[in-house]
């Protein structure tokens, strides 16, 4: 995980004004022991109207499996350029994904939503397993199938 690369990619992906005004955010997603191979996770942001704004992170390197992250895939049309430079390994059962990135101030307290899609080989797809609003106070939520909790601060 390379926060610098992440913020660079983000600054091109998120077409926001005042992108220079950013704050460091630490994001953690903990998985439960679902009894399968490493999970693919897509973390992305939608605007108050529900339209896709940009991707924050893609856990899982094989793009042929991205279609199983169907929320993200539908939003981006499977465009891998959306996650260029912000891609890492898939996350094993019971493990925690922790990333630090600089997020634009304008994203906070403005009705934007962070979504997490999850998928595991030979198991059910879990699009939009977690959705939580972006607030400057931070937030956390638990998932339904693979994700114990997602939080940021």
């Amino acid at each position: 995980m390379n926060p610098l690369a992440a913020v660079l990619a983000l600054s091109t992906a998120l077409t926001l004004p005042a992108v220079a005004l950013a704050r460091p955010v630490t994001l953690a997603a903990t998985l439960n022991n679902y009894g399968g191979d490493g999970a693919y996770l897509a973390l992305y942001v939608t605007d108050p109207q529900g339209a896709y704004v940009g991707s924050l992170w893609m856990a899982g390197t094989k793009s042929k499996y991205y279609e199983h992250l169907s929320g993200w895939y539908r939003a981006t049309g499977g465009d891998t350029r959306q996650v260029d430079g912000i891609t890492g390994a898939s996350v094993g059962a019971g493990r925690t994904l922790e990333i630090t990135l600089d997020l634009a101030d304008a994203l906070f307290d403005a009705g934007y939503t962070l979504h997490v899609d999850a998928a595991v080989e030979e198991m059910r797809d879990s699009p939009n397993e977690v959705a939580l609003p972006l607030n400057s106070a931070g937030a956390s939520a638990s998932g339904t199938r693979y994700i114990t909790s997602v939080s940021y601060r």
Partner: peptide, 11 residues
């Protein structure tokens, strides 16, 4: 698997 073939999903 290593994306060396143009056989990705078409949706």
């Amino acid at each position: 698997t290593f994306d060396l073939l143009p056989d990705g999903a078409s949706t």
